[in-house]
Design a protein around this nucleic acid. Structure first.
Lengths: 169, 169
DNA sequence: CGAAACTCGTTCGGCCCCGCATGATTTTCC
DNA sequence: GGAAAATCATGCGGGGCCGAACGAGTTTCG
């Protein structure tokens, strides 16, 4: 990520290259570091925790959501995991083939499919989640408690603002 | 993203479900909102700015990096864009087919490939970037200047901590 | 009751994404 | 000068990712 340039160097060069244009540099700094950080943390967790268990980040998230939200319909899992239903279908095929989740038709409503963890899936997520949380702690190591609280809050507000709104009849 | 639950509701449920486990909730709140926010902002920009021009987020980033860092080698563009060289190869194929970038062998070093914007590519990025910056401003709308500064700084620190380090012989 | 409208999950086509292997090129170091 | 090591971009295979189209199932309402 850092590549041949440091973060500070990169940001300086961009600012110089954009001199003269009427650009809001502050919000640009927030969003570009948002993407950088999300990528860096995600890669860090895959590298340190997930790859040894042959899991992708998305597969882990789906496993986690299924654990937290109990047996649940696919539409709900997709929403909580932040992926589309189409993507979830593929991920579930993979997880099901590895014997980590099961699919079952709902008896009341035949359109619904209920996803649940298998015992093996439950064992895996219980073993992996503490390691992921340790990695989260590591990623936030240099942030004070106040920093963490404020950062989480600011990120929440950004989600609220950009969350889907394309609906104005 | 928000799906059937609000952000606050989701976080409360997770906390209740994880009660008893020795989990650091604060860093979990930071990272989970980090991924949520990155997804939400990215989708927002694709929806509002990029899709009308038939560009993906990654293709836009590659175009932007090529603009900022002038004609440059692929390895450098990949690093700045936060993607692998392999991914960049594919993206460049797409952009080249649409006549937005050119590839040219370096004359000094035959291994290198220099990527440059075509006039059409330059026109496109110049037209799109102000709209992206407006979207960035919108995403940060509810954050004070101090919030923005502090958030950007915290995100930078998270990048530093998790940035690739797998080198200890 | 029964047709129309709606909801749900899956498939499909196209792109992004990566690690790895490969071939081309340059540099290092006898 | 020439073999070995290093560097670079690309192709490939497997998977994630989405919108759109589809078929099966359910609800609405005349």
């Amino acid at each position: 990520m850092a590549g041949p340039h440091t973060l500070a160097e990169t940001e300086r060069t961009v600012a110089r290259r954009l001199a003269g244009l009427p650009i809001d540099h502050q919000s640009m700094a927030v969003t570009s570091n948002l993407f950088r950080a999300a990528n860096a943390v995600r890669n860090y967790m895959e590298r340190e925790v997930l790859t040894p268990s042959d899991l992708t980040w998305t597969a882990f998230v789906v496993l986690w959501v299924t654990w937290i939200w109990g047996p649940a319909e696919t539409r709900m899992i997709a929403s909580e995991a932040g992926i589309s239903k189409a993507t979830l279908s593929g991920v579930l095929n993979t997880l099901q083939a590895r014997g980590l989740v099961t699919r079952r038709k709902d008896e009341q409503d035949g359109r619904l499919v209920v996803v649940a963890l298998t015992p093996a899936g439950l064992r895996l997520i219980k073993r992996l989640f503490p390691k992921i949380n340790a990695a989260e702690q590591e990623a936030c190591r240099t942030l004070s408690a106040a920093d963490q609280e404020r950062t989480a809050d600011c990120l929440r507000r950004m989600v609220e603002v950009t969350g889907k709104e394309p609906a104005e009849p």
